[in-house]
Amino acid sequence: MKKVFGKPKCLKDAVFHYCPGCGHSIIHRLVAEVIDELSIQEKVIGVPPAGCAVLAYDYFDIDIGESPHGRGAAVATGLKRALPDRIVFTYQGDGDIAAIGTAETIHAANRGENITVIFVNNGVYGMTGGQMAPTTIIGQITTTTPGGRNEKRDGAPIDLSEMLALTTGTVYIERTAVDTPKNIIRTKKAIKKAFRVQMAGLGFSLVEVLSACPTNLKLSPVQANEWIGSTMTTYFPLKVIKDKVGKLGALPHLE
C-alpha cells in the first residue's frame, strides 16, 4: 500500500499545542501543504500574529517573523518591499486583523501590497480566554458578553473581508471554512490560489477561514463545527468575495 496522506514536508516534527478540534491546526496543515505543492518553502516568509497562532513558528519549517498584535500587514509590507521576489504571508486571527489591526490591514490592501493574508475567523478571542471578538455574532455568549452580544451595545459583527473587497488594491478574497471535509478541501484550494496570485505579482490576496474554537465556544469539536455551518455562516456566508484574477490575466500554469 502507498501512503497517500501524511504530514507536509514544511511542518516540523512538533506536536500542535492547539486545543482538541481547533481549526488552527487544520489551517496550518493546509498552508503547509500549499507551500509544499508550490515548492516555495525556500522562498516563503510567514508573519504570525499575537494570539493562539503566535506559536506558528514552532510548527512551520520556514522563515518566520513575529508581528506585534494587529500589525501583520505592516510588517509584511516591509518584508515584501525589501524582498519582492519572496513570498510573504500573514496569518492572523479575527481580533488581530479586524479589531486592533484594522487600519494596517485596510491600508495594505488599498495599496495593493503583493502579500497573502490568511485570516482565521473563529468569532472569539481564543488565547486570552474567550472574550468578544469583532466577529462575535449577535447573541453569542462570551466572557465579556455574558448575556450575549448585543447589537446596540456592542455593535454588529464586522465583515472585514467585504470591506477589503471595496478597496481597489485587493485582487482575490474568498471566505471558506474548515468545518467539513468538503470545505477543508475548498479552503486549501483558496489558499493555493491566494499564494499564486502573489506569485504572479497581481496584488493583495486574502482567505478568510471560519474556524472552530470549541474550547471558548464551550462546545464539543463536532458541535462547534456544526455551529459554524448552521449559525456562523448566516453572518459570514462562504463565497468568493472578490476575484479580479481573470481580469488581470490568468495565473500561470502549474506543473
Partner: peptide
Amino acid sequence: VFIQAESELAAINMVIGVSMAG
C-alpha cells in the same frame, strides 16, 4: 522604497519588516 504610512504604528512596523529582511 518610500511609503507614506497610514499611521506611526504602521510606519514603525514596516521598519520592522524591512529590518527583518536585513
